[in-house]
């Protein structure tokens, strides 16, 4: 039964409309991982420092560890699971670019890196190096040293078309 602690809300997740009772005391991160089984979004620091839990909320990267589950009401959320085009046989160009550039080592930060990269390319099709660094400053990687990751973002920018980005554009406001 819908109550204070389990409000029934509507939201869109990876392009699919949902109406669910969500646990009010849970973060979005916990809800995604423990209730919906979407474990691609990683749980790192849980205080908004590491960016491993980054998802898109109305087209903008946010730390899902710092969003309460009821706050996604009427929002569009994209997680790493939704990035691969439907069918599950192909990868998204941003994912291909990360593989191509060896931008993945242990892989723990990768889902967050990919989500922030998509957020950046939604706003800015041709980011320069400093814009890339600034956008990814909230995503920590303890393996690669970032060089390959920045290369992957540049390669992704060169490869993507508007078609690859369109799904993520729902509910994007000005800022």
């Amino acid at each position: 039964m819908s109550s204070d602690l389990t409000p029934k809300i509507k939201f869109r997740l990876n392009g699919i409309d949902m109406e669910k009772e969500v646990p009010a005391g849970w973060t979005l991160l916990r809800y995604l991982r423990e209730e919906l089984g979407l474990t691609g979004t990683k749980c790192g620091c849980e205080i908004g420092e590491c960016g491993a839990c980054t998802v898109l909320m109305n087209g903008k990267p946010v730390n899902s560890c710092l969003v309460m589950a009821p706050q996604i009401e009427n929002a569009s959320i994209w997680t790493i699971e939704g990035v691969t085009p439907p069918g599950g046989t192909a990868l998204h160009p941003v994912q291909k670019a990360f593989i191509e550039c060896d931008a993945v080592h242990c892989g723990f930060c990768t889902p967050g890196m990919v989500m922030t990269t998509i957020g950046l390319l939604l706003q800015n099709k041709k980011p320069d190096n400093s814009q890339i660094k600034q956008a990814l400053a909230g995503n920590l990687c303890r393996c690669t040293g970032y060089i390959q990751i920045f290369e992957a973002v540049r390669l992704a920018a060169a490869m993507i078309s508007e078609n690859d980005m369109r799904p993520f554009r729902e509910n994007i406001s000005e800022n």
């Binding site: 908004g48 960016g51 980054t54 909320m57 903008k60 990267p61 946010v62 730390n63 710092l66 969003v67 922030t116 957020g119 600034q134 956008a135 400053a137 909230g138 995503n139």
Partner: peptide
């Protein structure tokens, strides 16, 4: 903070 923090 970071872009993620500024967005929230």
């Amino acid at each position: 903070g970071s872009w993620q923090i500024r967005n929230r």
